[in-house]
Amino acid sequence: MNGQTKVYTWQEAISAGCDPLQYSYLPGIIPASTLIARLDFKIWSNKVIGIDGYFTLILPMQKFQLTVHPTARYGYRTGEGLIDFHACCTHQMYLLELKQVSSGRWNLKNICCVEQQG
């Protein structure tokens, strides 16, 4: 499971030992609009068209979920289309830039790998 780009189905994630129920989707758990977190795994969203990214913020230890929705112009790319979230490797640290939308939820504005694992 280390360093994969795979996006699981819910059942594949459970079979692989992932526990998505430990990750909050509530917007209040995310402390800031810019943070560094580890991408633990990704699951195709069941409720909307998108990829749910499951992240762990190291200090303080918090687990949270962000959904990346595709756009007609960029697909699953963030920002100006530079980074394809679908291709982001798991178990790596990323700088996340988030934007809070009117519903209070956070959208992934940009993502950048800050640590490469060999």
Results as ranks from 00 to 15, higher is better:
Ile51Met: 07
Thr90Leu: 03
Pro20Thr: 00
Lys99Tyr: 08
Met93Trp: 08
Gln92Met: 14
Gly53Glu: 10
Asn46Pro: 08
Asn107Phe: 06
Gly118Leu: 15
Leu26Phe: 10
Gly3Trp: 11
His86Cys: 06
Thr5Cys: 12
Ala16Tyr: 03
Thr34His: 07
Gly50Val: 09
Leu95Asp: 07
Met93Val: 14
Trp106Thr: 04
Gly3Thr: 11
Gln116Leu: 15
Thr90Lys: 00
Gly3Ser: 10
Ile49Asp: 13
Ala32Asn: 10
Thr34Val: 14
Gln116Lys: 15
Asp19Ser: 06
Gly3Glu: 10
Leu98Arg: 04
Gln4Asn: 11
Leu95Tyr: 09
Leu96Phe: 04
Pro20Lys: 00
Phe64Leu: 03
Gly81Lys: 03
Gln11Glu: 14
Gln92Ala: 13
Gln4Phe: 15
Phe85Asn: 04
Gly17Glu: 08
Leu66Asp: 02
Glu80Met: 07
Thr9Gly: 03
Gln4Cys: 12
Val7Thr: 15
Asn107Thr: 13
Lys99Pro: 10
Leu57Gly: 05
Ser33Tyr: 05
Gln92Ser: 09
Glu80Asp: 14
Gly17Arg: 07
Gln4Gly: 11
Phe55Lys: 00
Ser102Tyr: 09
Val114Gln: 06
Cys112Leu: 15
Asn110Ala: 09
Glu97Phe: 06
Ala72Met: 14
Leu98Val: 03
Arg105Ile: 14
Pro60Ala: 06
Ala32Gln: 09
Pro27Cys: 06
Ser33Pro: 04
Gly53Cys: 12
Gly75Asn: 06
Thr71Ser: 13
Pro31Val: 11
Gly79Pro: 00
Ala16Arg: 01
Lys47Trp: 05
Val7His: 01
Pro31Cys: 08
Ile30Cys: 08
Arg77Leu: 05
Gly81Thr: 02
Gly17Gln: 10
Leu108Arg: 02
Cys113Lys: 12
Asn107Ser: 13
Thr9Gln: 03
Ile49Thr: 13
Arg38Asp: 13
Gly118Ala: 15
Ile14Met: 07
Gly28Lys: 07
Thr56His: 08
Ser15Asn: 15
Gly75Tyr: 03
Tyr74Trp: 10
Leu26Val: 13
Ala87Phe: 05
Tyr54Asn: 04
Cys18Ala: 11
Asp84Ile: 04
Ala13Gln: 04
Arg77Thr: 04
Ile83Val: 12
Thr9Lys: 00
His86Thr: 08
Ala13Lys: 01
Ile30Val: 12
Tyr54Pro: 03
Thr67Arg: 02
Asn2Thr: 15
Leu57Lys: 02
Ala32Cys: 09
Arg38Ala: 12
Met93Cys: 09
Ala37Cys: 06
Cys18Thr: 09
Lys47Val: 14
Glu115Arg: 07
Thr34Gln: 10
Leu98Asp: 03
Pro60Phe: 02
Leu57Ile: 09
Leu96Asp: 00
Lys47Tyr: 08
Gly53Ile: 07
Ile83Ala: 04
Ile43Tyr: 01
Tyr8Ser: 01
Pro27Gln: 04
Lys6Val: 13
Arg77Asp: 04
Cys113His: 10
Glu80Arg: 07
Ala13Asn: 01
Gln100Thr: 05
Ser24Gly: 05
Cys112His: 11
Leu26Pro: 07
Gly75Phe: 01
Leu95Ala: 12
Lys42Trp: 06
Leu66Ser: 03
Val68His: 02
Glu12Arg: 01
Asp52Phe: 03
Thr71Tyr: 01
Val101Ile: 14
Gly75Ala: 05
Ala16Val: 09
Thr56Pro: 06
Glu80Ala: 08
Lys6Arg: 12
Asn107His: 10
Cys113Asn: 11
Val101Trp: 00
Ser102Phe: 08
Ser103Phe: 09
Val68Ser: 05
Pro31Met: 07
Ile51Lys: 03
Leu108Cys: 13
